[in-house]
Design a binder for these strands. Structure first.
Length: 137
DNA sequence: GCCAACGTTGGC
DNA sequence: GCCAACGTTGGC
């Protein structure tokens, strides 16, 4: 199983919105970046991901699960763009902030730190474990 | 609100 | 195919 990180502006689509969708989940649409799209193509049903709030909050707030593989993005007719469906699994007891991640030596190589603009990114097994622990899981 | 970093577009 | 111009993102 692979791990990922999904970034969103909470004012547009936040963790609460994701939770409200329940097990039905929602497609992660609106991605218009090739790198991010390619990562979504690599995802498999059952993969887990962090849900990250950018902008004012800048913290990992929850865990999601991929429930559908990449398919055409329903928000555009441009067939270049695809997206997966994800559902909320559980909130982190304590959100893990970007500051915390940056101040942890073992997380210095996280894509979140190195390429902050990428909205969908891979997370290594080790990074996953560390952030989960920091979040109280 | 500013600005740096990055990706994309389009002219040549 | 290169590169300048532009738009967008996201941290500060």
């Amino acid at each position: 199983m692979a791990y990922w990180l999904f970034k969103s502006e909470p004012s547009v689509w936040g963790w609460d919105d994701q939770v409200a969708k329940g097990d039905a989940g929602e497609e992660w649409d609106g991605v218009r970046n090739y790198q991010a799209r390619n990562f979504m193509r690599d995802m498999a049903v059952g993969d887990r991901g962090f849900f990250y709030h950018s902008q004012s909050e800048k913290a990992v707030v929850g865990i999601v699960e991929v429930i559908a593989e990449a398919h055409p993005d329903s928000t555009t007719d441009d067939e270049r763009w695809e997206c997966v469906d994800i559902k909320a699994v559980k909130a982190l007891p304590t959100p893990v902030t970007l500051d915390q991640i940056k101040s942890c030596e073992d997380l210095a190589d996280m894509v979140l730190v190195k390429n902050s603009r990428l909205s969908v990114q891979p997370v290594s097994d080790v990074e996953w474990q560390i952030v989960c622990e920091m979040g109280g899981l």
